[in-house]
Amino acid sequence: MISDKDLAEDKDNLGASAPPISVLVISCSLDPLSQSRLLAFDAARRLEDQGARVELVDLQEMMLPAFDNAQAHDHRGVIGLKRAIVRADAVVIAAPVYNWSLGSATKNMVEITGATGENGRKAAWFDKFVTFLCAGGLPHSYTAYAGLASSMTLDFKCIINPYMVYATDRDTTDGVFSEGVSQRMQKTLDVALELAAALRNRTYSSDWEI
């Protein structure tokens, strides 16, 4: 007969053998004083502290070309970013809000890594688990990410974290976020890691389809 102790030991062994969750954090703001960039760095640090394997991509350092569905695909940074998205268990997108939607650099990043075409090129975003961290000027712009999130769900069958972080200038003091934003960040990342672990063993694979 299997005892409760045996079951507990089996559970511990399974947990110990499971590889760490791989998380790609993408900072999409080109503003040198960006609040969303601070969110990205904070998220990367917290995820590493929780045992995740984290890769941080900062678009200020990469400077992706504009999407033209042609030469942009051969850009070294684009190739590397697509590979990073494909191998990640989860992706965190940290982005600024401009004009009631996410900034153009964010949309360009998704377009340039989400195109399918010649030479076996396939979108990197299919079936990805995605978390959004956003920063804006007005408190009531917190739903601005919804348009991109919806399109990624429909196009790529992404699964969107039901929790997100939204911060404004009022939520930071000398680069330190308020307690409310800090607590929201921690819960959002806790959910991200839990759901990413649960989704890692999915058996299905998506492509362009309705």
Rank of each mutant, 00 (worst) to 15 (best):
Asp74Phe: 15
Val57Phe: 09
Arg121Thr: 14
Val191His: 14
Arg170Trp: 09
Asp58Trp: 15
Met164Pro: 00
Pro65Asn: 07
Ser29Gly: 05
Met63Val: 04
Ala135Ser: 09
Leu195Ala: 13
Ser205Val: 04
Cys28His: 05
Asn201Asp: 13
Asp155Tyr: 13
Asp190Gly: 15
Thr116Gly: 10
Gln71Cys: 04
Asp127Gln: 02
Arg87Ile: 04
Gly175Ser: 07
Gly77Thr: 06
Gln183Lys: 12
Asp58Met: 14
Thr131Pro: 03
Ala52Thr: 04
Tyr163Asn: 07
Lys11Glu: 09
Asp58Pro: 10
Met164Val: 01
Ala105Cys: 07
Arg53Lys: 15
Thr172Gly: 00
Ala115Asn: 06
Thr113Tyr: 10
Lys5Ala: 00
Ile21Glu: 04
Ala192Glu: 14
Ala90Leu: 06
Asn99Trp: 13
Ser36Arg: 05
Val97Glu: 01
Leu59Lys: 01
Ile85Cys: 02
Pro96Glu: 00
Lys107Val: 09
Asp169Lys: 14
Thr106Gln: 04
Lys107Asn: 10
Leu7Phe: 12
Glu194Trp: 12
Lys5Glu: 08
Arg83Gln: 15
Ile79Asn: 09
Ala149Asn: 02
Gly103Gln: 04
Ser178Leu: 02
Asn99Ala: 08
Asn13Asp: 08
Ile26Cys: 01
Ala8Cys: 02
Asp89Arg: 07
Asn201Ser: 15
Ile2Arg: 11
Leu64Thr: 00
Arg53Ser: 11
Glu111Ile: 04
Val110Cys: 02
Tyr204Asn: 01
Ser151Lys: 02
Glu194Phe: 14
Arg87Leu: 05
Ala8Lys: 09
Ala124Met: 06
Leu24Lys: 10
Pro96Ile: 01
Leu189Cys: 07
Ala167Arg: 11
Gly117Gln: 05
Leu199Ser: 02
Asp74His: 14
Ala66Pro: 04
Ser29Thr: 07
Lys187Arg: 13
Arg53Asp: 13
Thr203Tyr: 03
Glu179Tyr: 13
Phe129Cys: 05
Gly120Met: 01
Val181Phe: 09
Lys11Tyr: 12
Val86Ala: 11
Phe156Asp: 06
Val86Tyr: 11
Gln50Thr: 06
Gly15Tyr: 12
Leu30Ser: 02
Thr188Asn: 08
Met152Ala: 02
Gly80Gln: 11
Gly77Val: 03
Ala146Pro: 05
Arg87Thr: 12
Cys28Ile: 00
Gly103Arg: 06
Ser101Tyr: 01
Gln186Gly: 01
Thr173Val: 08
Ser150His: 14
Val191Cys: 05
Ile159Arg: 15
Ser29Trp: 08
Ser151Glu: 06
Met63His: 08
Val130Ala: 03
Arg202Cys: 00
Thr116Gln: 10
Ile79Ser: 12
His73Phe: 13
Val191Pro: 01
Thr173Gly: 03
Asn161Ser: 15
Asp74Cys: 08
His140Glu: 00
Leu59Trp: 10
Arg46Glu: 12
Ala196Ile: 05
Ala72Phe: 13
Arg45Trp: 13
Tyr163Ser: 10
Ser178Met: 06
Glu48Met: 06
Glu111Met: 12
Ala40Gly: 00
Phe132Cys: 08
Tyr98Arg: 10
Pro139Gln: 04
Thr131Gln: 10
Met164Ser: 11
Ala90Asp: 02
Leu30Glu: 02
Tyr163Leu: 08
Pro65His: 09
Ser29Arg: 03
Ala123Met: 00
Leu38Cys: 01
Phe41Lys: 14
Ile85Glu: 02
Leu47Ile: 11
Ala18Glu: 04
Gln35Met: 07
Thr153Gly: 09
Ala144Tyr: 00
